[in-house]
Design a protein around this nucleic acid. Structure first.
Lengths: 223, 223
DNA sequence: CGACTCATTGACGTAGCTCAAGGTATGTGG
DNA sequence: CCACATACCTTGAGCTACGTCAATGAGTCG
């Protein structure tokens, strides 16, 4: 039974050879580059070979909401036929150097038509994205800022790895922009968790010292 | 360029004959019935022949979030292979008598594999649902309760119809549960709009008198 | 070393939540 | 058709979590 993920990776890496064999354009982006011009509905589709990109939506009042992160072996945006107004506000930026293969919608659709297990992967991707968004809209929305934060830290920290792997390399501003809470308020809740010995904080990094105690703070929809 | 929709209808009605020809079970639900037992991840898929159903998520603290409405000619839930934890909290209820055709995931996947234009419809459905959820997570989240309400009224009211069609037959509690705001607070904002002559309210119904003035209150992501 | 960006802490305002009481349609059974 | 119950709606008063503004501190980099 799956919990939400903010970080997409390797959900298409089984098709890397298919991507390389299909007609495409090879592209690379420097840190900070946008994958497409902002203000436009998106049209190309990227399969990421290496690097990480971050997708966010800019609100007309000047805020931004960070939606998800896309690493190697995944695709963004995923194929769809219709254009939506909100796409114009969506921006995907490289957080580090990104190497990718670029496809048109028609090329991508052709690959789905030829290979139905590829279509399965597309459906899986959509289902995961819907799951993340449902979690945010229908669950996190009702939680206090502290609970939201604990849930996010829990989901972002790598439960499998050792203590050194349980680091989250995001600034407080970025965390605040994922949760749609105020940066100052977020800082206060982080100090609380720091005082309780659950995390330690540094510049652009948070380490989860006690995942067990953190889990106690989280909602049952999360752990 | 599409704006979000809360009410899904007729996005699969072009395939009604395909549904009827495929192996299925015919089912009907009385007003108030759930389409599947609550607390379970869902497994059957329904094509709705008539009636309307409402999907909501129950939060562990006792609140509920109304997600979407599903009328004739649409499908819910749409096919996916993985199971997600949050599905256990999702309930879809008949708002009136619902006649539907029930399919298993395997049957549904078979139909997608046989008929690629059916797969196109599934992708369109997912894209619309993601669009709605992005709108809620990344746009409405940052709006004040009044702006949220105006946006919702605008999206729910039938812009094509005449004055009598611009009625919304939902209780204030249901509207509040769509917007994740307090019922009392919602009532106050409705009185404001009533005082401005934009809407008239009654028991379980709101009529939009001046769609033009309402649009002025809405955000640009909505109109 | 200076100029960033990032993080912390305090003081204060307010939108929205909660509790509570009362009002008004709608439906039902006698 | 009326009495009563029930759901739905309205309005008031007070609280609080979060947002905003502002000033200061603490890493990092050229």
């Amino acid at each position: 039974m799956q919990t939400p993920t903010y970080i997409f990776t390797d959900d298409f890496s089984g098709f890397e050879e298919v991507f390389k064999a299909a007609p495409h354009r090879r592209v690379s982006f420097e840190k900070g580059d946008s994958l497409w011009a902002s203000g436009q509905p998106f049209s190309p589709i990227y399969y990421i070979l290496s690097g990480t990109a971050m997708t966010c939506i800019h609100h007309e009042e000047g805020r931004r909401k960070i939606l998800s992160f896309h690493g190697r072996g995944t695709v963004f945006p995923v194929y769809h036929a219709n254009q939506f107004k909100i796409e114009r506000s969506i921006v995907t930026q490289a957080l580090e150097e990104v190497e990718a293969l670029e496809f048109t919608g028609a090329q991508f659709r052709g690959m789905m038509q030829e290979n139905f297990s590829f279509t399965d992967a597309v459906i899986d991707w959509y289902a995961s994205y819907v799951n993340l968004l449902l979690y945010e809209t229908a669950h996190q929305e009702y939680n206090s800022a502290l609970l939201k934060l604990c849930n996010l830290l829990y989901l972002l920290s790598d439960k499998k790895g050792g203590p050194d792997d349980r680091q989250i390399h995001l600034s407080q501003e970025e965390l605040a922009d994922v949760l749609a809470v105020n940066r100052v308020n977020l800082s206060r809740h982080l100090s609380r968790l720091r005082q309780e010995g659950i995390i330690s904080t540094g510049r652009k990094q948070i380490q989860v010292l006690r995942p067990d105690l953190l889990a106690d703070f989280c909602s049952s929809e999360t752990v």
